[in-house]
Amino acid sequence: MSCIFCKIVNKEIASNIVYEDEKVVAFHDINPQAPYHILVVPKKHISTLLEVTEEDKELIGHIYLVINKIAKDIGFDERGYRVVVNCKEEAGQTIFHLHFHVLAGRTMGWPPG
């Protein structure tokens, strides 16, 4: 498979990992949009948010618990953070493996994008 995130999950490509367990891997984005920009990626290949199924709901809940743990461990939980999931090209998805952007360390604007 040529998916870059699958290659990171399989340790074929090095990354700056901040968290890993049997279901997910989290690492610093190589093109950060905030002082903290971490990607949380399920190890299971799911191309887009539209492909999440009933069987994935425990995995998606787990991802949000991992995001909370990372925020507390790194220390940006008190000030707050934003979680972004892009779905398909028009929303800005460029890598077709579901991933959650965790952005923190600066004030976020609204509306985004």
Rank of each mutant, 00 (worst) to 15 (best):
84 V>P: 04
77 D>W: 10
71 A>D: 07
55 E>Q: 12
80 G>A: 04
66 V>E: 07
58 E>W: 05
61 G>C: 01
57 K>E: 15
82 R>L: 14
72 K>P: 03
62 H>S: 07
68 N>H: 14
80 G>C: 08
81 Y>C: 04
75 G>H: 06
57 K>A: 13
79 R>S: 14
84 V>I: 15
85 V>I: 09
84 V>E: 10
76 F>I: 05
62 H>I: 08
55 E>H: 09
65 L>D: 15
70 I>P: 01
61 G>R: 01
68 N>Q: 13
56 D>S: 04
57 K>N: 14
66 V>N: 13
78 E>Y: 09
68 N>Y: 12
87 C>H: 04
61 G>H: 06
60 I>C: 05
74 I>N: 01
63 I>S: 04
72 K>V: 05
81 Y>V: 02
78 E>D: 14
74 I>C: 06
65 L>A: 12
77 D>M: 10
71 A>P: 10
75 G>F: 06
66 V>A: 08
79 R>M: 13
56 D>G: 02
61 G>K: 02
83 V>I: 15
78 E>F: 12
75 G>D: 05
65 L>R: 14
74 I>W: 00
80 G>Y: 00
81 Y>P: 01
76 F>Q: 07
65 L>C: 13
66 V>G: 09
84 V>Y: 03
70 I>S: 01
83 V>N: 05
67 I>W: 04
70 I>G: 09
73 D>Y: 01
70 I>V: 12
77 D>S: 15
70 I>Y: 03
79 R>G: 14
85 V>S: 02
58 E>A: 11
71 A>I: 09
77 D>V: 12
82 R>C: 08
77 D>Q: 13
85 V>R: 07
87 C>D: 15
87 C>A: 05
78 E>L: 10
79 R>T: 14
55 E>A: 10
60 I>D: 00
87 C>I: 01
71 A>K: 01
56 D>N: 08
69 K>E: 15
76 F>D: 03
57 K>F: 14
68 N>M: 14
69 K>F: 07
56 D>R: 02
66 V>C: 11
57 K>I: 14
61 G>I: 01
65 L>G: 11
67 I>T: 11
61 G>T: 08
63 I>D: 07
67 I>E: 13
56 D>W: 04
67 I>F: 07
58 E>T: 12
55 E>P: 05
55 E>F: 00
72 K>C: 04
65 L>H: 15
74 I>K: 07
84 V>L: 10
62 H>Q: 05
76 F>M: 08
74 I>S: 08
62 H>Y: 12
67 I>V: 15
69 K>W: 11
71 A>S: 11
84 V>R: 02
70 I>L: 01
82 R>N: 06
68 N>G: 12
77 D>I: 10
71 A>G: 07
85 V>M: 08
67 I>K: 04
60 I>T: 03
57 K>Q: 15
56 D>E: 03
82 R>H: 13
86 N>C: 02
83 V>F: 00
71 A>R: 00
79 R>C: 14
64 Y>R: 08
72 K>E: 10
58 E>V: 12
64 Y>C: 11
78 E>M: 08
87 C>M: 09
86 N>M: 01
59 L>A: 00
86 N>D: 00
64 Y>V: 10
76 F>N: 06
57 K>R: 14
78 E>V: 13
73 D>E: 10
75 G>A: 00
85 V>H: 03
75 G>R: 06
75 G>Q: 05
59 L>N: 02
